[in-house]
């Protein structure tokens, strides 16, 4: 409670939308704001802002900041500021996406992100990979309604066709249909290793581990998915060893090191997805930042 009262960014919850957006934009560009904010010597403004608001999960402030950042992005794109040529504006856009990626946003902004993800490849951002930034933000903010889930799954599967976006697509899929993401992993590992230079798998497998948590069924499905690709399985095991999986999740480690298992023990990911996971999605739409999919302790 004390932190909320003393938070220097509470001003963003009291100012009207337009002024709050202008305040945020000025602050992120290190321009003077009132009341002034003293950013620690070793941090950028966006880093200090995140350190102050990210952990306030029960406060209005994180959602307010994320939503304002989303509106500023929409405004900047409408004005063509994403186009090549203005490095400072492109950097400002990157900073706004950093906030969106880390903080909750309103339904309006979530819808805007989805629209942008669908049309983003058409917008030329030059050095600024607008499509990548949008996909990364969409991972957490996707809110498919019942009946829209298949379309969302199809969207991510399509994005995974492009190796540049495949890892982010797998993350997106893990959030709404983990078995579907598992199905894509062996091929992703093969392509990532065949790329020149080879693409690292570390962060992707970290997310896989985080999302699968303690679900034996999902780990079993992951193990089964690699039955036909033993060399990729070895790579994945090595990567998980570097992530200290054995110490942190011995059950998952053991499953990964079992001999070849029966195929698809969860009975088809679409079937599972259409039942239990849909409930998760519904709850996630209401509280997208809760711990619904968190690994069990």
């Amino acid at each position: 409670m004390t932190a909320m009262v003393n938070n220097q960014f509470d001003v963003l919850t009291t100012l009207p939308d337009v002024q709050a957006a202008a305040w945020l934009s000025d602050y992120l560009r290190s321009r003077p704001v009132a009341p002034p904010v003293r950013v620690p010597f070793d941090l950028e403004p966006v880093e200090f802002l995140l350190s102050q608001v990210h952990s306030l999960s029960n406060s209005e402030l994180p959602r307010r900041v994320g939503t304002l950042a989303g509106k500023l992005v929409a405004e900047a794109i409408a004005q063509g500021k994403h186009r090549p040529g203005d490095t400072a504006e492109q950097e400002a856009l990157r900073t706004l996406f950093t906030l969106i990626e880390a903080l909750p946003v309103s339904d309006d902004v979530a819808e805007f992100l989805y629209d942008l993800a669908v049309s983003g490849r058409l917008l030329d951002g030059g050095e600024l990979d607008l499509h990548l930034l949008t996909l990364r933000a969409l991972v957490l903010h996707q809110r498919p309604r019942p009946g829209e889930i298949e379309r969302a799954v199809e969207f991510w599967r399509h994005e995974a066709d492009d190796i540049r976006y495949a890892a982010i697509a797998i993350q997106g899929l893990l959030r709404i249909a983990a078995p579907g993401a598992i199905e894509l992993l062996p091929e992703f590992v093969r392509r990532a290793r065949a790329a020149q230079p080879p693409l690292p798998l570390t962060n992707t497998l970290f997310v896989v581990e985080s999302e699968l948590g303690s679900s034996k069924d999902l780990w079993q499905a992951l193990r089964s998915a690699f039955d036909a690709q033993p060399s990729q399985l070895t790579l994945v095991r090595d990567e998980f060893a570097r992530l200290r999986l054995r110490e942190r999740n011995p059950v998952a480690w053991e499953i990964l090191h079992q001999d070849a298992t029966i195929a698809d023990p969860v009975g088809g990911w679409s079937l599972q997805f259409a039942t239990g996971d849909e409930q998760k999605i519904n709850r996630a739409r209401e509280q997208p930042f809760d711990m619904l999919l968190a690994p069990a302790a």
Binding site: E47, S51, H54, S57, L199, P200, S210, L293
Partner: peptide, 30 residues
Amino acid sequence: SGWMVWNRLRRRTAPDDTPALRDSARLMNW
């Protein structure tokens, strides 16, 4: 700061596999 690492040192260009930060625990684990 961990936030400095996440903001400035993580992968930012495609192909990119930076983990999404669902919550503070995810940042800490990463």
